[in-house]
């Protein structure tokens, strides 16, 4: 098993500190989910991991070798970026065809047959200029390039943004098929957590420019609970744990608990329910907002 490791990564844009000391370890052969609120630095982190953007400080290595300007490492990765319909000179006039041709020229393991198949599946007109595509079509092209690159480590940034529900389902299915067949590593950032959560073997949650959580999704959810009941009893039952997003209705209180280990002996007078990844993330972020 290979490892893509980011060590003490810091990224500042001028005075703006986007990433503050990120340590991250991606094991190959897994599907990772990267979640975080808008502007938390997901795209920046992914760019730095693939050496597309320089970090202010810190180092990224793949199997111990620095990724920066390293032919051997770069050849193993594909970070299919969100296509921009505009450039600083106006509409992006590069044709889809040219985009795909460039991808074919650059990705070592490019699978043209697969690419053609996906183009048909997503119903893409290759003769169109990138700037003339809809948001969903732009997403489809990033997905096509990512999948057909057949890169060992494939990164998709917001691949389902703008896709309709049918195309999203198609995308999840494609990822699973491809993963089951090849065991490629996928890192997928998304805001539609609910749909994709069960796809992720591991989840990385970015918060405030730092990695708040990097853990097996099942293990993480196994130690997260939604606890509700009479307010004093809930407070008593959860006092030893990390509590997020308390809400009160009359004498009732509901909190989200993230314990260090799975808990089996909550006070029997409180209601204990599991939490979905989306709700856990929401609770963690709501806490942030309250403190701020």
């Amino acid at each position: 098993m290979s490892k893509l490791v980011g060590k003490s990564i810091v990224k500042n844009y001028g005075k703006d500190k986007v990433l503050k000391n990120i340590d991250i370890e991606i094991e190959t052969g897994k599907i990772y989910g990267l979640i975080g609120r808008n502007g938390v630095g997901k795209t920046t982190l992914l760019s730095i991991l693939t050496a597309q953007n320089p970090a202010t400080s810190g180092e990224v290595t793949l199997d111990g070798e620095p990724v920066w300007e390293n032919e051997k490492c770069l050849d193993r990765m594909c970070y299919s970026r969100e296509l921009s319909p505009v450039t600083i000179f106006g509409t992006n006039n590069i044709k889809v065809k040219e985009y795909l041709r460039t991808a074919k020229a650059f990705y070592k393991n490019w699978d043209q047959e697969y690419a053609e198949e996906l183009i048909k599946l997503f119903n893409i007109n290759k003769k169109k200029a990138v700037g003339k595509l809809s948001k969903g079509q732009l997403s489809a092209i990033t997905i096509i390039i990512a999948l057909a690159s057949k890169a060992e480590i494939t990164i998709l940034d917001e691949p389902v943004a703008g896709l309709d529900v049918v195309a999203r389902e198609q995308f999840y299915k494609l990822i699973i098929e491809e993963y089951a067949e090849t065991g490629r590593t996928f890192i997928i950032s998304t805001h539609i957590i609910e749909e994709a959560a069960s796809l992720f073997e591991k989840v990385i949650i970015l918060e405030d420019g730092q990695v708040a959580i990097e853990e097996n999704t099942e293990d993480l959810l196994a130690r997260a609970y939604r606890i509700s009941g009479q307010d004093t009893i809930v407070d008593e039952a959860t006092k030893d744990y990390k509590v997020f997003h308390p809400e009160v209705l009359g004498h009732n209180k509901v909190v989200t608990v993230l314990a260090d280990e799975p808990v089996s002996n909550f006070d029997c007078r409180v209601q204990v329910e599991p939490v979905s990844l989306q709700n856990l993330f929401f609770a963690m972020c709501s806490e942030e907002r309250k403190e701020a």
Binding site: D75, M77, T102, F106
Partner: peptide
Amino acid sequence: LYDSLVLSMGAR
């Protein structure tokens, strides 16, 4: 445009 494009596709 082009340098940015090929950089995003893994060029050094």
